[in-house]
């Protein structure tokens, strides 16, 4: 069973997070608590994926309405806590996923939304 941990926090806190305020393209500096956390997920054998996102000021939102593309600056919803990164973990059940989420550095001050992944079939390329 795969779960996505969606990491929400205030932007200022995110400078500490994997999504911190690094300019795009530069090698990100990961703070020790995050290194430790990712290391723990790996040691537990539940780490599947994880990325940090650039700050929400770099976000652009796209909608198509009546055939027109609407491009707007900023994230989909302006909220105090913004999505700053994610992990995908493989756990037996929700209790294990919640246990892992509670250890995430962003859980202290920010919040972690835990969502089961139901997956999506990938079409085989025509050929």
């Amino acid at each position: 069973m795969r779960y996505m941990l969606l990491i929400y926090g205030e932007e200022a806190q995110q400078d500490e997070s994997p999504s911190g305020g690094e300019p795009a393209g530069e090698a990100p500096e990961i703070s020790p608590p995050w290194m430790e956390y990712t290391g723990w997920l790996l040691r537990e054998g539940i780490h599947t994926a994880g990325e940090r996102l650039a700050t929400s000021s770099s976000a652009t939102t796209v909608r198509v309405r009546d055939g027109n593309r609407l491009i707007t600056d900023g994230p989909y919803a302006e909220t105090k806590e913004v999505l700053g990164g994610y992990y995908i973990i493989e756990c037996d059940n929700l209790d294990e996923a919640l246990e892992a989420a509670a250890r995430c550095p962003a859980a202290f001050g920010g919040s972690i939304e835990v969502r089961p992944i139901i997956g999506m079939p990938v079409p085989t390329p025509a050929g």
Partner: peptide
């Protein structure tokens, strides 16, 4: 969907 386990919670939980 969320795979809430069917068990008595362990230890700290």
């Amino acid at each position: 969907q969320a795979a809430i386990p069917y068990r008595v919670p362990l230890g700290d939980q």
